[in-house]
Amino acid sequence: MRPGPSLFNRIAVGLGLLFLYAPIVLLVVYSFNASKLVTVWGGFSTRWYQALLHDDQMLAAAWTTLRVGLASATVATVLGTLAAFALVRHPRFAGRTLFTGMIYAPLVLPEVILGLSLLLLFVSLGLPRGLWTVTIGHATLTLCYAAVVIQARLSSFDISLEEAAQDLGCTPTQAFLQVTLPNIAPAVAAAWMLAFTLSLDDLVVASFTSGPGATTLPMRIYSQVRLGVNPEINAVSTLLIGMVACGVIAAYVGQRRSTQRR
């Protein structure tokens, strides 16, 4: 039998996890604090969650975030799928390397620069900033992530399946819709979840591209914290963490299923 992990390994892993998750655990615990003082434990209570239900500004921000997330994730997934398809299926077209690099650049580009350039674009186009500009900004930000996930799946997808569909009478578009898409669907769903999650918790791009009346939840939290931490923030953050965790787990499961089903 293999020996279990050594004491050193256990301590190392424990320390690592503690370092990563202690702040989050603390935040979640204090969201159930009865006391108004953030650093003093005053017993268990859900009063901050109840207070949240009556905080219209916070609810409006949550609603904005949700709408931006849904719309931008959908746009990013559609565009990301098309981009990934072009990259994988036509490997010899001129400028492929450039195109690939350009799609993946936002992965490593500092978000501040992306946000700033989007802001400049919207200003020079004269677009009024608001919900739609945040959505466009988030679609730009998350498109490359979606493209990476879908490209990974497509490159292991047997091209002769598409050829067989065409051979049996499908146009290339029909072959894509009837054969390719159903087979890569889990990866597409995973890409969507990832894009949605990224949009939910983005602060930087949203700050640059939003305007009056389009405050997202992370923006709201950030601006409140600057006025002083209040336990309600802990409650809303806990909810956000829960959603993001669900999104990430769903994306992971989706991607695993799509690779297993090959």
């Binding site: 002769s160 399946l161 089903r261 090959r262």
Partner: peptide, 13 residues
């Protein structure tokens, strides 16, 4: 004309 592929190319879904 139709082709039977060497790799079969059956639709897995």
């Amino acid at each position: 004309l139709h082709m039977m592929f060497q790799s079969y190319a059956l639709f897995p879904h």
